[in-house]
Simulated assay, not measured.
Amino acid sequence: MTRLNAVREGQGPVVVLSHALGCDLHMWDDVAPLLAASHTVIRYDHRNHGGSERVPGPMTMQMLAQDAADLIAQEAGGQPVHFVGLSMGGMTAQALAVLRPELLASVVIANSSAHYPDQAPWQARVATVRAQGVAAVADGAVARWLTPEFVATPEGAAAAGRLRETLLRNDADSYIAACEGVAAIDFRESNRAIRTPTLVIAGARDEATPPAMSEQIAQAISGARLVTVDAAHISAVERPGEFARALRDFLVSV
């Protein structure tokens, strides 16, 4: 079992927050307190991220889903949880909803994808990191994560700085393994088997996982709802209030 670093706060039904590639549980710093007023919020670092265990070798979304299942079994006492994943966390959610549906009361898949038909950008990113390290892709990643208008504000500039610092703490081998795991996803058919109540959140200005990718996920999952947030890729950082409102509105209806 992979040792995962996790933080627990609040009281009530359990919500688990799962972060994006290269980030850590602090990606949720502005969302978690808004949810903790009415829910128990558990946020965690994926393997090879933040304070969690470093596991050498390949990394797949199925591995991350098993990690999440183990965490839920430990932290939620067998009660189904509301699982919220953004980007790579959303891919973890898609895998988990098929692997262990009995652990889930609902699923939220934000700023994510079910499949990448074009592998070239991932191959280029991996090659750059292998040759030059994570620092060589950090500025480009943060530029995709947040809109220029947000970064131009003091709040946005500080958020961009924190995200960049977190990304730079990733070692090259772990980051490459995560990139390869993300690039390899294909949930197009398995998503059709999901019966867990599902909310899909798209970023209207998301260039990393454009709204069409969220629409594809929502169309494949029976009964899924789709909400769009006016943000780029890391919408939970750029629009935490709007993101939390979408979550709360969904959770009270489940």
Rank of each mutant, 00 (worst) to 15 (best):
M1Q: 06
R3K: 14
A6N: 08
V7E: 10
Q11T: 05
G12V: 03
V16P: 00
L17R: 14
H19S: 09
H26Q: 05
W28T: 10
W28V: 02
P33Y: 04
V41Q: 03
Y44M: 07
D45Y: 07
R47L: 03
G57N: 11
P58V: 02
M59V: 15
M59T: 12
Q62L: 01
L64K: 14
A73E: 10
A73Q: 11
S87F: 05
M91R: 13
A97C: 00
A105R: 15
V108D: 04
I109Q: 08
S112H: 00
D118G: 13
P121R: 11
W122Y: 10
T128F: 04
V129K: 04
G133P: 05
A136S: 14
A138R: 14
A143S: 13
A152N: 02
T153W: 04
R164G: 07
E165Q: 14
L167S: 08
L168K: 15
R169V: 02
C179F: 11
E180S: 13
G181H: 15
V182F: 06
V182L: 14
A183C: 08
A184D: 02
E189H: 06
T196M: 09
T196D: 01
P197E: 04
P197H: 09
I201A: 09
I201F: 12
R205S: 13
E207W: 14
P210V: 14
A212M: 15
A212F: 14
M213L: 15
M213Y: 13
I217C: 04
A220E: 00
I221C: 02
I234K: 15
S235Q: 06
A236N: 12
E238A: 03
R239N: 09
G241F: 08
A244L: 01
A244F: 08
R248S: 10
S253P: 00
